[in-house]
């Protein structure tokens, strides 16, 4: 029943998926970029600076989604002790950290022409910085604690505590007065972003998600080989 989850079967799948993504990635990237930079209209208020949204928003989504994944995987690891989950968590970590940082930096670049400042310690931005700190804590605990069991235990506790930060980030713009505007795309109800700008946004999101999948799979493969190498030594 769990055949799919054996490393050797996953390994064959990874190869196939990587070559599939490689074959479509650049076409999608070019389409996405041309929509984001040329074909989409400027905003009525922000003019062309709104184009920063096409990298800022997907990056922030990926940063948040990665952490949510890591937290739930950590919970399942803590309860079921499936070793494979740790490999998956380790492979998601760098992606999450990278995109959260990208979201913060591009947001700061976006803030200068629109808000008039690079930085504001409002609730949204502060909670994003806290998310980066949680990512760094997780990576540090995986790298610095040599006892593997201990490292996994500690990092899963950090991830669970960090999970509380996620709804705070999401709703910070509604609960408190912030400089950051509320979300344009809502889970329920109509979004307040025009379709001619929503389409490129979703396209860029798809491109970045595929990129994430590529990085994730390569990293996951590396982790599997690391484990196999260890087994080889035991021979």
């Amino acid at each position: 029943m769990f055949n799919v989850f054996y490393n050797s079967n996953i390994f064959a799948w990874i190869e196939k998926i990587i070559s599939f993504i490689n074959s479509i990635f650049f076409v999608l990237l070019i389409i996405g970029l041309s929509f984001a930079l040329i074909l989409s209209p400027p905003d009525y208020l922000q003019g062309d600076s709104v184009r920063i949204m096409y990298v800022h928003v997907p990056a922030a989504w990926i940063g948040l989604a990665s952490f949510t994944c890591i937290a739930f995987l950590s919970i399942s690891y803590f309860i079921f002790k499936i070793k494979n989950l740790i490999l998956i968590i380790k492979s998601i970590l760098p992606i999450g950290l990278m995109f959260t940082c990208i979201a913060i930096v591009t947001g700061s670049i976006w803030g200068q022409p629109t808000w008039g400042t690079f930085w504001a310690w409002d609730a949204r931005i502060t909670s994003m910085v806290i998310l980066v700190l949680f990512y760094i804590l997780l990576i540090a605990s995986q790298k610095l604690i040599l006892d593997e069991d201990k490292a996994n235990k500690i990092s899963s506790i950090i991830a669970v505590v960090g999970l509380i930060n996620i709804p705070i980030i999401k709703y910070s713009v509604e609960w408190w007065n912030t400089l950051h505007q509320p979300a344009s795309i809502k889970i329920t109800g109509t979004s307040t972003i025009h379709s001619s700008m929503l389409m490129p946004l979703l396209l860029m999101f798809l491109v970045l998600i595929l990129y994430c999948a590529l990085i994730f799979l390569m990293k996951y493969k590396t982790e599997i080989i690391r484990i196999k190498k260890k087994n080889l030594k035991r021979l």
Partner: peptide, 13 residues
């Protein structure tokens, strides 16, 4: 006038 902001954020990413 927004070119520098847009290009720098895309290039950086």
């Amino acid at each position: 006038g927004y070119g520098i902001f847009v290009w720098s954020s895309f290039l950086l990413t």
